[in-house]
Design a protein around this nucleic acid. Structure first.
Lengths: 152, 152
DNA sequence: ATATTAAATAGGAATAATCTTAATAAGAAA
DNA sequence: TTTCTTATTAAGATTATTCCTATTTAATAT
């Protein structure tokens, strides 16, 4: 916690009561969490906090590289993860479960080679959508009626 | 157009007036477009169409693999692209410009090897955020005040 | 051509996320 | 400590997106 406060000062970001409260809340959240969860938790300590402040700061923390955003399918918003290392996630269409991919197929130095001088990379986000082993059987049956594609 | 209608029937999806109108609109949209743009365009031909119908069908078309969704940074929603082949995109934090990466560093067969039997992949989404060459100079100056990280 | 049935829709309610502005407070300087 | 500057905030307005339900209509069977 003190490390992050020092880090924020280094980045010329003010260390406000609300930011400290948000950082405290993150410790109470699970591995993946929504802005709503953080809001509910912070509100217990600071009933006056506004939703806007939560969003603004979660986005700031993302930009600073303290959090990663994970995009849910079907435009269902996004959740956050506390990690400084971007990595891919598997997301189940059916149950919504999120799994980390540790053995990452994307290396930033490879990406940098690909984009060359045309672009300066700050961060990336790779979501892999489909069905977890648990949901596969039931969902594949349902998909057969829609005949959705699957990569093999 | 006729191909897509046949395709929809094959997938057991009904070919409604609204769906045909949406498909027609897509031809009028640029390479990347928002649900709002499609709504505005469809509304000209069918003033009664509801926003819900636009969203529902753009999501359906995504699920069917006709469209890809591109997640904008800072939770700023997403735009769609007409393409059946998922591929990465570079997105400029500053001007919002979107660039395709053709020489893709992600291959579905590699992903499938990584996830093995634990997950059935349907599609993926890789967004690479940062600054385009045009915005780099001006924005890096701004970033120095915030001292945001950049990968080298 | 008509009836049947289930998917798809419109409309409006509900929720989520962002923007605007005046007030507040953190950090810097005196 | 006190003042000053400006980033940050709360509040509410606005916009974006999804949900709910009664109605409509595409596709199928008669």
């Amino acid at each position: 916690m003190n490390d992050i406060i020092i880090f924020l000062r280094e980045k010329n970001c003010r260390v406000t009561t609300q930011r400290k409260a948000i950082l405290n809340s993150l410790a109470n959240c699970g591995q993946y969490f929504s802005a709503q969860e953080v809001f509910d938790d912070v509100k217990r300590a600071y009933p006056d906090v506004s939703f806007d402040t939560i969003y603004r700061n979660l986005n700031l923390f993302s930009m600073l590289g303290l959090l990663q955003q994970i995009h849910l399918p079907k435009g269902d918003g996004h959740v956050f993860e506390i990690t400084e290392v971007p990595h891919p996630h598997l997301i189940c269409f059916n149950c919504g479960k999120i799994l980390c991919v540790d053995n990452t197929p994307v290396e930033l130095n490879i990406l940098n080679k690909v984009v060359g001088d045309e672009f300066t990379i700050c961060r990336y986000s790779l979501e892999i959508y489909g069905y977890c082993s648990k949901c596969r059987a039931t969902q594949q049956a349902a998909n057969r009626s829609l005949e959705l594609e699957e990569y093999s």
